[in-house]
Amino acid sequence: MNLDLALRWSEILMGCAFLQQGAEHLNAPAKERWLYIPRMVLALLLIAGVQPLIIEALLLLLGVAILYRFQGPYNGGSDRMSLLLLCCLLMSHLAPTRQWQEIALGYLSVQLVLSYAISGWIKLSNPDWRSGQALKDVF
């Protein structure tokens, strides 16, 4: 898979994730709903490949507005990863050269691997996670 195809697939999958997240808020109170309906429209445009630079910039602004509305992420790590993905994809469109584009997507890849590797290691090394006790304690 070349870089352009990886970029395009990342945009499509992120758009799908935003659509699903948005659908969860369609029955929410109006103020909350009106943050997510425009996000769903922008996600559809992103999936269609319309002006990705502008659409991603608008999605980032909406992402910050959503962070402000909930005083932090609504879905914890999942929202943070979505924002990181969005920022890196936006940076790759703004990158002046191919090398900077690779750096933007490379940073995203490193963070993606670290997110699973570090949190996975913590759970492997803690006996309460291995026995399932921690799940009961946390949830």
Partner: peptide, 20 residues
């Protein structure tokens, strides 16, 4: 302050099991 934790994340989910 909202964006930075997403851009420079620390992925230490539940390294300490705090009171729930």
């Amino acid at each position: 302050s909202y964006l930075l934790p997403a851009l420079i994340p620390s992925w230490r989910f539940f390294d300490y099991i705090a009171p729930s």
